[in-house]
Design a binder for these strands. Structure first.
Lengths: 253, 253
DNA sequence: CGCAGCCTTGAACAGGCTCAATGGGTGTGG
DNA sequence: CCACACCCATTGAGCCTGTTCAAGGCTGCG
């Protein structure tokens, strides 16, 4: 294990207190409830910034439910290039990539201090037997990951660079609002290079895209900070994405 | 249902005969065995070319195990553009995309006459309870889809056009050999436009990529047919992909 | 035979990449 | 407190890959 502190099994009452922010849509918290009610043994781990929850090549022993923080899922190729595949927040699972082969194929790294609930995969399978809601939970989470990857993929090589960045922001806003967090001012946890890597473009292009979004009054940066984004009108942002999606279909009657 | 003929539940002994080609690696046939041995009720459907196994928006009732034929999984956007997300062959599952929301988000279309084993999703969940191997089967299949999408995604916006086409071919060859089919001469089931769509490029670029691969003696077309590809040396093909993957890392000592 | 799809090839264009210079913010040490 | 270094971000100029537009060829089918 490569967490900061050794996880120990603690009472579910206690971990229930170790929650994230106050207001959130029910389905974000649902997995926590299900695990608690089903009495599945959970170990809570704090993960410090930059630490790995797991790394490619390690045997899959646990699945991890993100309780707080932001985690990036990435692969690194033999020649050292990295690729950020996804960002995961509270309520998302980490580790499904390892189920097929019994071994992880990605790294999961915290990009801010966070906390995960780790559940032994075999314990989860066992619990699934007499707790259908646990089985359903995992299925839905995996299905979600499959369907989600779909349209992020779709977006990625359909949209031009500017719109791709805009969509990234819009998606981030969705994630936050879905978890009951403020969406007017957001703090990017990633450098331009990392964003670019995630979106399949260079850091310069990301920078230019941001500049363009500012010029078009779709976003604004907080005075002097390149990471503090203010989005006055989420709809405007979304419109920006859509306008780029259908280059001239709009002019066709 | 939008198959050609109405599916009817038949004995497992009978469907066992309705197999695909002769020799195949064990894990391709494994899911069929597991379903049969667990006594999960299966309906076998013939799917004619161009027919849909399911379409986006339909309620998820069944998962479908491909017994034969090639199926494309695609999404179509509101404005009518399509995107081919994946191709599925014998042993692959169709329908996981619908688990999260209970509704399919993709279309699954046969691109050649084929056959699927349809299993009610709830029956599968039920069977999972006292048949852990069924649960494991589904988990592994979903995990596989998650991990697989990962690196197809990775490849897609990392590689230049030529290499992308080469990788597509190599992947296709792998799929075939993995299922015990001949790999020296393959028949593309897709038009240049569809391949391009799948790989995120235009049909002209696909065509040029093929021409280049021919010029470099990595592949050859059967006299007068643009769809019959002869691959004399699979390793050469793979080398072509890798050489493009690491543009100058090879020259760095 | 003639038409319709599909494929190939060429030429001009464009979006994003590379290379390169500049600037601001932060942190460290004098 | 200032100076310097380092990292990150911005911006510009030129290039290159893949797109777009356009013309033609091949195959199969009515």
């Amino acid at each position: 294990m490569n967490y900061t502190d050794s996880g120990k099994t603690i009472s579910h009452r206690a971990v229930a207190l170790a929650r994230g922010p106050a207001v959130a849509e029910p389905d974000v918290d649902a997995p926590f409830e299900v695990l608690r009610e089903a009495g599945v043994p959970v170990r809570v781990h704090a993960v410090r910034e930059g630490a790995a929850v797991f790394r490619a090549g390690e045997r899959l022993s646990d699945l991890h439910l993100v309780a707080s923080g932001v985690h990036k899922v990435m692969v690194v190729t033999r020649d050292g290039r990295e690729k950020v595949l996804a960002l995961r927040l509270r309520g998302d699972w980490l580790g499904f990539d390892g189920i097929a082969e019994g071994r992880h194929v990605c790294d999961a790294i915290a990009i801010e201090p966070g906390e995960v609930w780790s559940v032994r995969y075999d314990a989860l399978l066992e619990a699934s037997v007499d707790r259908p809601e646990v089985a359903a939970l995992i299925h839905r989470a995996m299905g979600h990951e499959i369907a989600g990857d779909r349209d992020s993929m779709m977006a990625l090589y359909t949209l031009p660079a500017d719109a791709r960045v805009a969509k990234f922001l819009a998606g981030w806003l969705d994630s936050l609002s879905h978890r009951g967090m403020h969406t007017d001012r957001i703090t990017l946890k990633l450098t331009r290079a990392e964003i670019g890597n995630h979106l399949g473009m260079t850091l310069e292009t990301v920078s230019r895209a941001f500049s363009r979004l500012v010029r078009e009054n779709v976003i604004r940066f907080v005075e002097g900070h390149h990471r503090e984004v203010h989005v006055p009108d989420v709809e405007a942002l979304r419109r920006f994405v859509h306008s780029a999606m259908v280059p001239e279909a709009a002019t066709v009657h």
